[in-house]
Amino acid sequence: MELVVRDLGVARGGVPVLDGVGFALAPGRALVLRGPNGVGKTTLLRTVAGLQPALAGTISGGGERIAYAGHSDGLKAMLSVRENLTFWAQVFGQSDIAPAIQGFGLTGLEDRMAGTLSAGQKRRLGLARLGVTGRPVWVLDEPTVSLDTASVALFAQAVRQHLASGGSALMATHIDLGLDEAEVLDLTPFRAKPRAAVQDEAFL
């Protein structure tokens, strides 16, 4: 089942930012969203993840199949790495966290409090959470922030493995991950036209 987005319009803070976005994401494929700051990448991803309603258009194949990872990792500083991951695994009805810990190079850190990890390690833990959701469509917002080159390679490897097992990934990133399966979608042409009426109202 593929994720299909048609004619999607999204708004941030009530102001339309994107209009008429459409794409299809088949299993085993990745789609990288590009565009300058403020174009609406995060807003689009949050809409696809179901965190906010769309202004227009349809999204099919999303909902319960999506694992979302935003700017913040959703980690608790006073829980250990293992406790953090186990919690999310239980929420998503999974039990095995070992592959996620190995896949993101967290071996040996299991009993450290998440609050004592470095920024890059926290990010890796946040991404490892995707592995314990068991969901096929990863929606990732700037997943490589604060990762070093080696960790980016680890992450690319994890994405590749996920794609190979029939999953798909939709991500906003500025770094080239070297994924053969990835297509690039530039969001700049989909910018919503500023509506004159909105500005007029503001001046009244």
Binding site: R46, A49, G50, L51, E64, I66, A67, Y68, A69, G70, H71, S72, D73, G74, L75, K76, W88, V91, F92, G93, R129, T133
Partner: peptide, 14 residues
Amino acid sequence: WEDGTLDLLATSPL
């Protein structure tokens, strides 16, 4: 809310 857990919970099966 601050650490993003709420976003993730809202997209979880719970």
